[in-house]
Design a binder for these strands. Structure first.
Lengths: 320, 320
DNA sequence: GTGAAAGCGCTAACAT
DNA sequence: ATGTTAGCGCTTTCAC
């Protein structure tokens, strides 16, 4: 900036004015400055700007895995909102590891992001207390933060969605409905189990429940075990998109009526089409970002807790 | 940091030493500093650190769309490499808009990222010359940069892949093979067209070629037009994953032998399974990141041009 | 309409 | 083993 000022024969502050589009510079002067900028290939140093102004025009997003379509849709929605607000996005995948989540969030805080959107992997967010007290806005998406933290949340109706799925299968005449869910450490998995259990009532049988991170092997083993029961399941409820796909693949050839939590691309093109409880990842991302930018703009109201509806998308996978 | 120093009764530089794990601090002193840090909820300000040290420990990634599985896989691979090198990732989607690509890249440069990985949307990268001359490493992935720029590239064998697809269809007895590709503005689309054309030779017929961004409407119109020819296509070659999926959906019910460029989740579970030319997006991301971090580490050798192989994955969609 | 000076929070270089 | 000083490149404040 000093060099540009020298080259244009003005003071440093005038260059700053031109670069920031501030008023109070004669057009001719501004033009001279711009010419010098182009000639020298000058780029404003945002680190210095951030240091002085305190605003970074950057928000941090921690998700579980960018490569998972659920989170990549959510990411895209957050990014679109960020663009509209002139912000860039720092992204990180926690891989469901609380330590990694914490590292990422703290690294973002060190960079003084203007706000955070977090899909929590852990259930202890005490480490975030200093930032929240310092006024750094944070929105939790898909899962709530650990206890004792009063922050905005955007969740979906997990238990209600599970109830939809189970009722649909009950209506199809099924009484033995298995649930294949993700690890009980994950909030959404536990909530969906709760919805499943409460809806089944007397029909609940814990031998028809399997909950852990889905690997092809574990899913296959779960299915074999359940199908070998003397009273085997006649239908399946799968607890998220990855599990649904893993189950479909593990079934290779065989077929069982099925409802999956989460919609996924091509669910409609499989035969039969897969009936799902659809969330709206893009809507969740958009909602979280809207909330965050309202906070960044200065909204200091009480924490908001948005719960987005889910809907049953009936395809062919339950009909006889 | 000043406050922490005061609270711990040491000089500012000692706090800096503790925070950076530098040697030359007595354990007892370090402990006192750490205690003060925890008590005050101190977080190092990375903007100041960056300003002083010149390194940001951040790399910038510009892709076309995070929500596209091809790019989200690539992103994840880049992120994993970044983590290993203690870097964070600034991500942005260009949405195939050259102006947006430029804005993102320049915004990243203003933030003084240590390096750039770019999937170019435009074909003029003169705007990047000042950075490259200033020694900012950049790797171009999936598509080369505009002319006159001598930077590292990681591409796949687009024309060779198209040749594989066409030869497979020819071997299946087809002589009228249509190509549905993306916009000719996209390097990969043009290269795949070239491979298709060169392999077909005499059999090439431009009435069997359609190239533009795939919308359900345009794809349906293309198919209708081609199928209404007096000598209609007996097989399809689709130019990327999105087109393949859009075509499958547009065919609703009807069926034509098909090979698609790009593998996609569930391609194997459709019936028939979809034969594809598979790229390796994760491998491309990993390769690009490895190259970038070698440059960041100081490698000033001549520009490297990596071309990754593709492979034909035969499923059922061509057999009669 | 323009400029000079102070200082954001840190690290590098050099004492002690 | 610890402290002092200068200065990274910008914005803020105030003066002209």
């Amino acid at each position: 900036m000093k060099d540009v000022a020298e080259a244009a024969g003005v003071a440093l502050k005038t260059v700053s004015r031109v670069v920031n589009g501030e008023p109070g510079v004669r057009p001719a002067t501004a033009e001279r400055v711009r010419e010098a900028i182009a000639r020298l290939g000058y780029r404003r140093n945002e680190s210095a700007r951030m240091l002085r102004s305190g605003r970074t025009s950057t928000i941090g997003l921690v998700i579980e895995d960018v490569a998972d379509p659920f989170y990549s849709g959510l990411s895209r929605a957050v990014e679109d909102a960020a663009i509209r607000h002139g912000c860039l996005l720092l992204t990180g995948s926690s891989g469901e590891d609380p330590a990694r989540e914490r590292e990422l969030v703290l690294a973002f805080c060190n960079r003084r992001v203007d706000g955070l959107i977090v899909v929590p992997a852990g259930d202890d967010h005490a480490y975030l207390r200093p930032e929240l007290e310092a006024g750094v806005p944070a929105v939790f998406v898909d899962r709530p933060p650990g206890p004792g933290l009063d922050a905005d949340t955007v969740l979906c109706d997990n238990a209600g969605g599970a109830a939809l799925a189970v009722r649909h299968l009950l209506a199809g005449g099924h009484r033995r409905i298995a649930f294949l869910g993700d690890s009980p450490a994950i909030y959404t998995a536990t909530e969906r189990l709760r919805g499943y259990r409460e809806t089944l009532g007397e029909l609940f049988d814990e031998r028809l429940v399997a909950m852990h991170p889905p690997t092809p092997e574990s899913v296959r083993a779960d299915l074999e075990r359940m199908l070998a029961l003397e009273d085997p399941p006649t239908a399946l409820f799968t607890g998220n998109g990855r599990i649904t796909v893993t189950v479909l693949r593990a079934m290779c050839g065989r077929w069982l009526p099925l409802v999956g939590f989460d919609d996924f691309e091509l669910a409609d093109l499989l035969s039969p089409g897969v009936t799902v409880v659809a969330q709206d990842p893009v809507g969740m991302g958009r909602m979280a970002a809207d909330l965050l930018f309202r906070r960044i703009a200065g909204d200091r109201g009480p924490a908001e807790h948005v719960r987005l509806p889910v809907r049953l998308v009936v395809r062919g996978s339950v009909a006889r």
